[in-house]
Nucleic acid binder design. Sequence first.
RNA 1: GGCGGAGUAGCUCAGUCGGUAGAGCAGGGGUCUCAUAAGCCCCGUGUCGGCAGUUCAAAUCUGCCCUCCGUCACCA
Length: 676
Amino acid sequence: MNVSRRILVTSALPYANGSIHLGHLVEYLFTDIWVRYLKMRGHDAHYFCADDTHGTPVMIRARQEGIEPEQLIERVSEEHQRDFAAFGIEFDQYHSTHSPENRKWAEFIYQALKDKQHLERRDVEQTYCENDGIFLPDRLVRGTCPRCGAAEQYGDSCEVCSATYETTDLKEPKCSICGTPPVRRSTEHIYVRLADFTDLLRDWTREHLAPEIANSVGSWIKDGLRDWDISRDGPYFGFPIPDEENKYFYVWLDAPIGYIAACDRWCQQNGREVDEFWRDENTEIVHVIGKDIVYFHTLFWPAMLHAAGLNLPSAVHVHGFLRIEGEKMSKSRGTFINAATYLQHLDPQYLRYYYAAKLSAGSDDIDLAFEEFVNRVNAELVNKLANLYSRNLKFIGSRLEGRLGRVSGEGQALVAQAVDAAEEIAAAYERRDLAAAVFKVCQLAEQGNLFLQQAEPWKVAKTEPETARDICTAIANLGLILAIYLKPVLPEMVAKIERMMKVDPLGWQDIDRLVENQEIGEFERLAERIDRKQLDSLVAAAQQEFAGASPEPDLPAHTPLADECSIDDFTKVDLRVAQILTANEVEGADKLLALKLDLGPLGERQVFAGIREAYPDSQSLVGKKVICVANLKPRKMRFGLSEGMVCASGGPKEASDRQVRVIGADPEAQPGDRVS
RNA sequence: GGCGGAGUAGCUCAGUCGGUAGAGCAGGGGUCUCAUAAGCCCCGUGUCGGCAGUUCAAAUCUGCCCUCCGUCACCA
């Protein structure tokens, strides 16, 4: 019934440009728990991962630190692996995309794409910084939106009017690294014609993805698959493309190939053949990813594998994102919590338990709410589970000479009930519904507590010690069965249970094996209760960690000072006090508020301001006196004419939590008065 | 705006084929004492986001609307 399967499991490769944080850990803990389960079932299962090391951000970061990219990625890799190990995440192989294996496979797959004529060369005009000597990705170019004229917009889209365009369309573009204006330069890129694989992908996505994921991927396919640019011009940190001058593989080409490279490395060291995994169709390949990278894993990646004659994934498991206290992680609020910071305050087992208890098979986001975290850990992990071992085993130790009896009488039904749950729990693990597995274990633990309450061995022991011994032996055996079910989630805690019970490491096959008539060992406490204060100090530490630091480490810490200007330049700008008469949300624009301004003698103006996110309650603006650029050339927008601009302050555009605030005038100031 | 997902008790979530809704936690009360101030017992009418429709019957099917999340490709 339990045929051994060969299964290769991966998590997405963390980028070698930052630390592992609680959001990453959702994925790695989930995968670790699932693979541990598969191994317990006796499957030939392996967990492979690697650092994703290539690309412009790594190159720039290394340059900023004055070191070679290789030094940077080595340091980051060590840090990543230290964090993973501390959380009990066990990879069979943790490799790097900057490795000989990865290069070999990247070249192999590229060659296959080339041989089968899926590649195409095309000239593109791109933005190039002569000062830094590199082509600039969209995020690193800023300028004035060609459509609405908003300043300081990204190279790909305008945050004010949500227009999308090419970096080359921007007016007055500037390089975000050095601030100098980039130039346009024509260059030849290599594209994969993804549309060649349309039929294959349509079929594959239907068969191997969860329905909701297949639906959304299906709509991309239906809209027509676009070609994929897989080359970048040097200087670029990556692998050179064979037979090309100064061209490198785009980081996303070789990133997923890292899965194969890690497997290859492991095979070399363990006497296995990489073909067993990537060319033998009996192998299951399961990629665990976040929903942000579905496109790459369900379209590009299967196409590449197919072209190279390699196995396609059997499943791509998509999990949701982590939210903290219902919101995105935020450095300023202290909810951007690195793995290392967490470890200084809390036991990693808490997080393993909490994530497992919340992660079901779907791709909904999960929320880490501090109060719930404390409650669940204390109520379930400690009170319900750890305390069941504590009350029982301590009692056996102190009152029953530390020796087990037999599972008899009603205890047999209790144990049988736990054994019978094996199938249900296995099914939950199998469909990757960790929450359902944990829930069932909690239910069984409740049964154990209830059983003890009713059997009252502490009373029975006074007159019939052997009966009491049998009662406790039933609970001890229940405890062993629960330990088996929980072992993928809480391996360290279960190791303690194994020691206390003096049994060999537990496997799934031990579920219906009774442990009777033997000595048990010293009691060890399994888990401590958490105090809310520990969470508070963790948040304080996380906040401290980023205080004063750049909101986005790879981008400038603050908006650079603009060039010097003369008083004449300044007086060209006619700033006036304006009172906000109405403030309304603009239909069809997520970021705009339509403001009606009273400029006193200058009359009323309509202005569209990109401040909707900063002022969710737009009505709070009504009546405020603000500063307005009154002589700005009126701009026709999709939603109407904008006759001016309201002055507002805010952190760098890149900052995820920039505080945008309008500049208020003194309440006594008169609408229409000039600012000078 | 297009597409995808979600909206069920204070919180986190279950609800297979349509038959007028449930677990855990939190909260209140009681009780035992082996145990990590743990255990056990009792207490849950919430417009199942809104409106309309199909049906004898809808949280569950259909349509429209509202809110939240994701995504719309050269962004790692």
